[in-house]
Design a protein around this nucleic acid. Structure first.
Lengths: 140, 140
DNA sequence: TGAATTTAATTTCCAAGTCAAATATTTTGA
DNA sequence: TCAAAATATTTGACTTGGAAATTAAATTCA
C-alpha cells in the first residue's frame, strides 16, 4: 500500500549526486596518470567530433559555464593541446581546434575512459546500462 | 552486428554528468529562494534522520570532503541552522546537531525538493525512476 | 606507564569556479 | 548610414574547493 518515503537518500537528486561523485572520483584517479582533468578530456572529445565549435557551443557540450571554459582553455593552450582561431564569418566567435599533440593525448586518455566503462560492465549488464543512459538523457 | 560507439556523449560518465548538472541547476535555482545550497540541505536531512553523526560520517552521507564540510558547517552555524557539540565518548569527534530553526527551514526546503521530484515524474514514469535509482545505487 | 602510532577534525595555501562587468563585434531599424 | 541593441567571449573581484599539513585526542604495546 502506502509508499514509504522516509529516507532522503531516495531523492533522485541524491542518488544522482552520489553516483556522479563516485564515478567522477574513480575517473579522476585514472586520468591523474595522464595529468589531465575530466573536463579537459570532454573538451578534447567535443573538438574531435568533427564540426568547428565556438566557445559557446563547446561550453554547452562540455557541460561547463563559459568563464570556466575560457580559463580551462587558457591552460590547455599553454599545454599545447588546443589553439584558438577567430571565426571567419563572425569575428566575435572563437573556434577552438585540437592540436596534433592534443589528438594524440586524447586518444591515450580515451583508452583509460574505455577501461573505466569496461569495469562498469562488471556491475551493470548491458541492458541496464542502456536503460540508464536513456533515462538519464531524458532528464536533461 | 557491430555496435557503433562513435559519440563520446554515450559514455556513462558523460550522461551522468549532464543529468547531474541539469538536475542540480534547477534544484539550485529553486533553493535560491530559501537562501540555501543543495549541500547544506543534504547536511540538514542527514542530521534529521535520527542518529548522532560525527563530521566524518556526515561528510560521507552528505557527499562532501571533510574540509568542505567543515567550512560549510562554519557558515551554517553562523546562520543558526546547526551547532557543534564535542562528542561525549571521544573528544576528537564533533556531533553536529540541527537547531530548531534548522529543522523548520529544512522542512520548508524539503517541500521545494518534493516539488522538483514531482516535476521529474512528468518526464519519467514511476517504474523508470525506480529502475534508475536502483541502477545508480549500484554504481556507488 | 608513557612514547609512538593512529584517528578526527580543522587549517592553510593554492588552484579553480562564479557572478557581474567589460570588451569587441555584429545586427537592427530610424 | 549610424546610433542603439544584441551577442560572444573574456576579465576581474571574490568565493569556494581540494591536497597536504597541523592540532588534538585516543589507542597501542613495550
Amino acid at each position: 500500500m502506502s509508499a514509504q518515503k522516509k529516507h532522503f537518500e531516495h531523492h533522485l537528486s541524491y542518488v544522482l549526486a552520489a553516483a556522479h561523485r563516485s564515478i567522477n572520483q574513480s575517473l579522476t584517479e585514472r586520468l591523474k596518470k595522464h595529468g589531465i582533468k575530466i573536463e579537459a578530456w570532454r573538451v578534447m572529445e567535443c573538438l574531435d567530433a568533427g564540426e568547428r565549435l565556438t566557445m559557446g557551443e563547446l561550453a554547452d557540450r562540455a557541460l561547463l559555464n563559459p568563464p570556466t571554459l575560457t580559463k580551462l582553455v587558457d591552460r590547455m593552450v599553454l599545454d599545447g593541446l588546443v589553439h584558438r582561431k577567430v571565426a571567419d564569418e563572425d569575428h566575435r566567435q572563437i573556434n577552438l581546434l585540437l592540436t596534433s599533440l592534443g589528438r594524440i593525448r586524447m586518444i591515450q586518455i580515451r583508452q583509460e575512459v574505455d577501461a573505466q566503462d569496461q569495469s562498469l560492465a562488471d556491475v551493470l549488464d548491458t541492458t541496464s546500462i542502456d536503460m540508464l543512459r536513456e533515462a538519464l538523457a531524458k532528464l536533461c
